[in-house]
């Protein structure tokens, strides 16, 4: 129970994947201009991340280790993640076409979201069990969603703010992201894994 809490707090706040480990920065900057699409992106990522950490754990534990080919883990994880993202896209198009249309190009981007691969590889390195792996992936996705939504809300406000013309658009977004990362540093030491 304590480990579970530690993993959740660690992935969501202390070692946040985006702001402390600097993984998954592409969707963090790409899909954060509108709160709606940020929410959809976080939900899709949450689903894919949890599922992919479970799948990659199963593949590592029951296929790669017995066959003594653990060196293929990165390659297998990428394959599994790509297939899962594709599956999520198909399911989303089937069950919620509207959300699918608004996410558009960003959904396949989850494939290249390095946070997803990072979670799978860190699970192996930290020797998590099945439950811990799933929780680690879920926590990472919650942390990702949290900062993505906060960042999107900030950027929506920045749209109407009076910003010097040299800083408008991407520059102010990057400065904001940097300030957020500094803010999240306040959590470091809260949960050491």
């Amino acid at each position: 129970m304590e480990t579970a809490l530690l993993i959740l707090v660690g992935t969501v706040l202390a070692n946040n994947f985006v702001l402390a480990r600097f993984l998954g920065l592409c969707p963090f900057l790409g899909v954060s201009t509108k709160l709606d699409s940020a929410l959809g992106m976080s939900l899709a990522t949450c689903f894919v991340l949890t599922l992919s950490s479970v799948c990659s754990y199963l593949i590592y534990q029951y296929v790669l280790l017995p066959l003594d080919i653990a060196y293929l883990s990165t390659l297998s994880f990428i394959l599994v993640i790509a297939a899962l993202v594709q599956l999520t896209e198909l399911a989303l198009r089937h069950f919620n076409p509207l959300l699918h249309r608004s996410l558009g190009i960003f959904l396949p981007l989850i494939t290249s979201n390095c946070a997803v691969l990072g979670v799978a590889l860190l699970n192996v390195r930290e020797q998590h069990n099945l439950f811990e792996s799933a929780l680690f992936g879920f926590g990472a996705a919650i942390g990702f969603g949290l900062v993505l939504l906060a960042f999107a809300a900030l950027r929506e406000r920045l749209e109407t703010a009076d910003i010097p013309s040299a800083l408008q658009g991407a520059p102010i977004a990057l400065i904001t992201a940097g300030l957020m990362a500094m803010g999240f540093m306040g959590f470091s030491g809260l949960a050491n894994l």
């Binding site: 593949i59 296929v63 066959l67 003594d68 080919i69 293929l72 390659l75 297998s76 394959l79 599994v80 790509a82 297939a83 594709q86 599956l87 198909l90 399911a91 198009r93 089937h94």
Partner: peptide, 29 residues
């Protein structure tokens, strides 16, 4: 040989699942 065979099987099964899902969900609706 094990490694190549493993990759082949993994890729083939992922492809099979995707093709089946695409047929099942899309074609009809």
């Amino acid at each position: 040989l094990t490694a190549s065979l493993y990759l082949l099987i993994l890729a083939a099964s992922a492809a099979a699942v995707l093709v089946m899902a695409a047929r099942h969900w899309r074609a009809r609706d």
